[in-house]
Simulated scan of single mutants.
Amino acid sequence: MIGSRAFHALTFDSRRFDCGSKLRFVEATLAPALEREGMGADVRAIAERMLKG
Rank of each mutant, 00 (worst) to 15 (best):
M1Y: 01
M1A: 01
M1L: 03
M1G: 01
M1F: 02
I2F: 10
I2P: 04
I2Y: 05
G3P: 03
G3F: 04
G3N: 06
R5I: 13
R5P: 08
A6Y: 02
F7K: 12
H8N: 15
H8Q: 07
A9F: 08
L10P: 00
L10W: 01
T11F: 11
F12K: 00
F12S: 00
F12M: 00
D13S: 05
D13F: 03
D13T: 14
S14V: 01
S14E: 06
S14I: 05
R15N: 08
R16N: 11
D18Y: 10
C19E: 12
C19R: 12
C19G: 06
G20F: 00
S21F: 12
S21I: 08
K22C: 14
L23E: 15
L23Q: 14
R24C: 11
F25R: 12
F25Y: 08
V26A: 07
V26G: 05
V26C: 13
E27W: 03
E27D: 12
A28I: 03
A28Y: 05
A28P: 04
T29Q: 04
L30N: 12
L30C: 10
A31R: 08
P32H: 00
A33I: 11
A33K: 11
L34P: 02
L34K: 10
E35H: 10
E35Y: 09
E37Q: 08
E37A: 05
E37R: 02
E37S: 04
G38H: 04
M39V: 14
M39A: 12
G40T: 01
G40L: 02
A41C: 06
A41D: 15
D42K: 12
D42W: 02
V43H: 03
R44W: 03
A45P: 03
A45C: 06
A47Y: 14
A47F: 11
E48P: 01
E48S: 02
R49P: 00
M50Q: 03
M50H: 04
M50A: 07
M50D: 05
L51C: 09
K52Y: 05
K52L: 10
